[in-house]
Amino acid sequence: MLEQYADTAYKGKQDAKFRDEIATDERETMYCRYQSKQAIYPRGKVYGHCYDSSQSSDYKYNLSGKAQHYRNILGSDPHVLSLSSLGRKVTDVLLLSWGVAHLVNLLFLFTIPLFLFLFGDTEEATSALFLFLLVWGGSKLFNLTVWKLVRKKITHTRVNFERNTGLVWSSDKGSKGQKVKLPFEQFNAHYKVQNNPQSGFPYRGFTLLHFKKDVFYAWTGANLISSAFVHWELLQNFMDVTQPLADIPQFEYYREFDKTTAEFDKANGRPKYFWYRVDKSFLKQMNHADDELIKEFSDDEQLNNLLTGKLIKKLSPPDIFKFPWKYADNIKAESEIKFGKTLWQKFTSFLMVDL
């Protein structure tokens, strides 16, 4: 059965027989048993490109040095894309809670003592200032010492995609947190929906689940199924060495180290480090092109096609997504590239904790 499932699913077919019967009892976790029954995203291009509004953040992280900072923490490798799996989110939730608590304390630090001082209660203002400074200092000290030491040890919550070998690194439930490396071709993107417990609002995405082992990468985005197709195609593009990497800010770091991409860029006259040099106003042009394309996607219809196994309509995106540099007006000279934070960014970074 497993072999038949592999042959079927890898070709992107929607065969309910294999979907419903595959490895449900053999799997250890209820989550994987449930996900193995869900509809499978077809392989290949549907949406047609890997750019969406989230790339604006990657553009900013590249210029500020934040992207390189995280690569250094996780172990920088020009062939590995390291992503956090939403299916293993306990650590991430704790980190978010810490970050929010630190930010709230900062707001209190700058407002409450001032408020008390303006109302003439100098003694209470001094006490409040001392208390909030103490909490801020403790949080920063923990961030610079203990957290700095343990951060690398919890990277098992991430999944690594290695382009040059075609392997996916992840943690196997039965391997005591040890990394296991499995071929990308043995994973399939099963439909996933996650509802907000307060509002009931659905977030749609997929679980990239190994056809036999309980090893997976889980991702959910917006309510639109189009965002899931974009992310699924992004992973496929990164792992397919027969085609150049998608021309998006997130992949700029990897381009020069990848043979296929470097040859494509040279043959087409692409400016080196384009996404480090182009003006941020160009992102609006890219976002506009994406907005126009999504109008043709018919999200509800495509979601229904996915869930019922019907043929999914493929889009043909404009060339701006393949050759963005041909549509950009303001591209700085390579010598003008400046990385790093402004003085204001350095100040705010000093105040905050680095998660």
Rank of each mutant, 00 (worst) to 15 (best):
L2A: 05
Q4C: 01
T8C: 13
K11Y: 06
K13W: 07
K17R: 10
F18D: 01
D20P: 00
E21V: 05
I22C: 13
A23P: 00
T29A: 09
Y31Q: 12
Y31G: 02
C32V: 01
R33I: 00
K45R: 15
G48F: 02
Y51D: 08
S56G: 10
D58I: 01
Y59R: 05
Y59T: 09
Y61S: 08
G65A: 03
R71A: 08
R71S: 02
S76K: 07
H79A: 03
S85W: 02
S85V: 02
R88M: 03
K89V: 15
D92K: 10
V93M: 14
G99K: 14
G99F: 12
V100C: 06
H102C: 09
N105L: 15
T111N: 11
L114E: 08
F119D: 02
F130A: 15
L131G: 03
W136T: 14
G137R: 11
S139W: 04
N143P: 05
L144E: 13
T145W: 12
V146M: 14
V146L: 15
L149R: 14
V150W: 09
K152W: 14
K152T: 13
R158V: 06
R163M: 10
T165I: 12
T165L: 02
S171A: 15
K173R: 14
K173L: 12
K179L: 11
P183L: 04
F184T: 07
Q186N: 14
N195R: 12
P202F: 07
G205T: 07
T207E: 14
L208C: 09
K213G: 00
F216K: 13
Y217V: 10
T220N: 15
G221W: 10
A222W: 08
W232R: 15
L234N: 02
N237I: 01
M239R: 04
M239W: 03
A246R: 06
A246G: 14
I248K: 11
F251V: 05
E252Y: 09
Y253R: 08
R255A: 03
E256L: 10
D258R: 05
K259R: 08
A262C: 09
F264G: 09
K266V: 03
G269H: 06
R270E: 08
Y273S: 12
Y276T: 00
L283H: 07
Q285Y: 06
N287C: 04
N287W: 00
H288L: 11
A289H: 04
E292V: 13
L293M: 14
E296I: 01
E296R: 07
E301S: 09
Q302F: 00
N305Q: 15
L306V: 04
L307E: 07
L311H: 04
I312L: 13
K313C: 03
K313G: 06
K313W: 01
P318I: 09
D319C: 03
D319Q: 15
I320F: 13
Y327K: 10
D329W: 00
N330M: 03
S335G: 02
E336N: 14
K341Q: 15
W344E: 09
V353Q: 14
